[in-house]
Design a protein around this nucleic acid. Structure first.
Lengths: 190, 190
DNA sequence: GTCTATAACTTGATAGAC
DNA sequence: GTCTATCAAGTTATAGAC
């Protein structure tokens, strides 16, 4: 299937938002990047600049929320759940690094109504993630570190993947996963 | 010593850059925040908006480069050096969370000449940090993980501190340090 | 050192021809 | 669906009075 022009526009926008940041990215520059189109014509494919940001932010939020739902539903130990969550972050980051980077870095430019919705979803995700860590601690599987410190250390630890990891590099997805398990889980486990 | 107006302006700017991002922060809003001053009058205290960003980015870069220089000069094991580096990041983050957040997130809006200089300094820092990890691996003190994965996991792990850590909270600096050592070093050590 | 006024420019978005 | 033309609003920064 060939990409529709709308898809091309949205993908180019995500790249531009990643490279320059949402606020520094102009519709004229987006048009240049899509090629052979004027900025005004972009409005046949999108309603506004913010609509593109909204789609990126909420599509990724949904990916993470669906993912953590599956992890919660699985009948496994806290350690296995934590591994599955790290795998989820790696998978989403490698599946579409551009999109997830914009999601990570540009959500604050959502307008107020959407920003509130987004922050509520993020808070929900973080609390469910933290609950898994807390269960592990109370069961004695994890060390008695502060759950917030463990949570944010793990959450931010996977945010560099897009910037550094390229499959072409001589490091495999398996090595990436196992090194991250070593670094992030071995410190936590009893 | 009372703060000079210049200091007040630069501090308010850093706060504004942190909250809204450099590109979304306007000189008019900065003036409102400083209070009882018009945007045009700010130019008696700064040469340009970018001058403020430059000062923030290069002051922090210098803090990290001086810090890693001291760590390198110390005659200690890779594990102790790594602990000292984590302590360095925590100290800088807690000492001035606003400034270090702008340094972390807004450097890309430096104009070309300064951007190149900044990126060279960052690359220097990362390579010296990585060299310490590599020494630990080759000496057998650390596990044979990929040095880049370890480097970026550690570097990004301390970036949430500003957003979450408040000394008023019922968690001490000592607990923060020891939990981060547990999480970040225990996974790496043999 | 602060003000008002404004220059010079860029921004997101729309109207209407084709 | 794309174009040209344009609007209205916002931007950084400067000039010159006080």
């Amino acid at each position: 299937m060939a990409k529709t022009k709308k898809q091309q526009v949205f993908e180019a926008a995500a790249e531009l938002f990643m490279e320059k940041g949402y606020m520094a990215a102009s519709m004229r520059e987006l048009a240049d990047r899509v090629g052979l189109i004027q900025a005004s014509s972009l409005y046949n494919h999108l309603k506004s600049k913010e609509e593109v940001l909204r789609k990126i932010c909420f599509d990724n939020a949904e990916k993470f929320l669906i993912g953590i739902g599956e992890v919660e539903a699985s009948d496994t130990s806290p350690t296995e759940k934590l591994k599955a969550l790290i795998r989820l972050h790696i998978r989403i980051a490698i599946d579409d690094p551009t999109s997830v980077t914009v999601f990570n870095d540009e959500w604050r430019h959502l307008s107020e109504h959407y920003l509130q919705d987004f922050l509520a979803k993020r808070k929900d995700y973080e609390q469910r993630f933290k609950a898994i860590i807390e269960t592990g601690i109370s069961q004695g599987a994890f060390k008695a570190v502060d759950p917030n410190i463990a949570l944010y250390t793990i959450l931010t630890s996977v945010r560099w993947i897009h910037y550094w990891y390229k499959p072409a590099r001589n490091i495999s997805l398996e090595k990436l996963e196992s090194d991250l398990f070593t670094l992030l889980i071995q410190g936590l486990e009893n």
